[in-house]
Amino acid sequence: MEKTEYSRFRCFDDKNVENVHDLAYTFQVSFFAMCRIATFPWAALEKALLNSSSDVILDVLRKTCLHPICREKPPSVKYRRLFLSELIKRHELNASEPLDELYDALGDVIGAEEDALCYKTYLLPSGEAVSIEENVAVISEGTTGLVTWEAALYLAEWALEHPDIFTGRTVLELGSGAGLTGIVVCRTCKPTKYVFSDCHRAVLERLKNNVALNGLTRPDSTGVSVLTQELDWESAQKDQLGRIGADTIIAADVVYDPDIIGCLVRLLAELLTCKGQQSRPEAYISSTVRNPGTYSCFKNELEKAGLKHLVLTHPVTQVFPYNRITSIEMIKVHC
């Protein structure tokens, strides 16, 4: 994806459009992140069509379905089909001349075979793109770890604003899932070593694919030593954790099941005991609070284990297009 001066995600509607380029950019970042079709600024597009005829549609099309990223790392077939159908409908309602490019693009996906996998691509402030291979289904192979969740996007945005937490450090991520947060940290925050971890076989395979997809298997590309490890919270041994030697521990959307809270807290206590480490490790956990009871239980268990936690209330600038209506909370955990 080409570099752009727009380093933060903007939300445009029919009352908030600076120019056609802004509008096309918003369509672009929303399309590659596979945002819900209904959330696109369609009213703003219709308004722009009144002034620029079909040029704005062509600009949107070139930045989405005709963009090189869409050929190499495309959103799902179904998603592209729905997007193009809506784009054609808006164009037909507001323009007199048909566009062959629109119908050609739709023709390409009408007969395409749907795959179980797709790609979501997110634009970093630098203009670089991070692409994540995901499962089309939210739940697949008995896990939800094959897709990216809002808390992971929020944690990645928080990391972009606090690179000092990661620079020059060894970072361990618990429950890395599809890998978005860690890839962003490795690409932007300059840790010395980054350890992705999970315990599900399919998730670990996806993690390895996404790490390679984003060039992190080449040490010369970022200067970060990157590892992907199996880490079972219940059976993790002290020597395994000691070999990792984490200075900073992060996790996103890991507090959702009451049955795993106990082993998660025990693991955090072991990681944060500071034995044999020059500095006190700290953990940062981003959670979508779906069940307040479960989340309160987690905080209570932290207290029982002698761990302190601090809710981080400073606002985090939104970089990626996702729903922030849900309650997401960041906490710092330390001993």
Rank of each mutant, 00 (worst) to 15 (best):
E5V: 01
Y6D: 12
R10D: 09
N16D: 12
V17G: 04
V20D: 15
D22N: 13
F31E: 03
A33E: 02
M34Q: 13
A38R: 10
T39C: 09
W42D: 08
W42K: 05
A43C: 10
L45Q: 05
N51R: 12
D55H: 10
L58F: 02
R62Y: 12
K63D: 00
C65Q: 06
L66A: 11
L66R: 13
K73L: 15
K73M: 14
F83C: 11
L87D: 04
H91S: 08
E92A: 14
E97P: 08
D104Y: 11
V109L: 07
G111Y: 03
A116N: 14
A116E: 14
L117F: 15
Y119F: 11
I132F: 08
S140C: 13
G145C: 06
L146P: 05
V147P: 12
L153G: 07
L153R: 07
A156S: 14
E157Y: 05
E161M: 07
P163F: 04
L172F: 01
E173R: 03
E173L: 07
G177N: 13
G179Q: 10
V185E: 10
V185L: 10
C186K: 03
R187P: 08
V195I: 10
D198I: 00
C199E: 06
V211E: 03
L216M: 09
T217N: 14
R218P: 04
R218S: 15
G223D: 03
S225T: 04
S225I: 02
W233T: 10
E234R: 08
A236W: 00
Q237K: 11
G245L: 02
Y256L: 13
Y256P: 02
T273I: 03
K275H: 11
Q278D: 07
I285G: 04
S287K: 01
T288I: 08
V289D: 13
R290S: 10
N291T: 02
N291S: 12
T294F: 01
S296E: 09
F298H: 01
L302P: 07
V311Y: 13
L312V: 09
T313A: 15
P315W: 00
V319F: 10
V319I: 15
Y322I: 04
S327R: 14
M330W: 00
K332S: 11
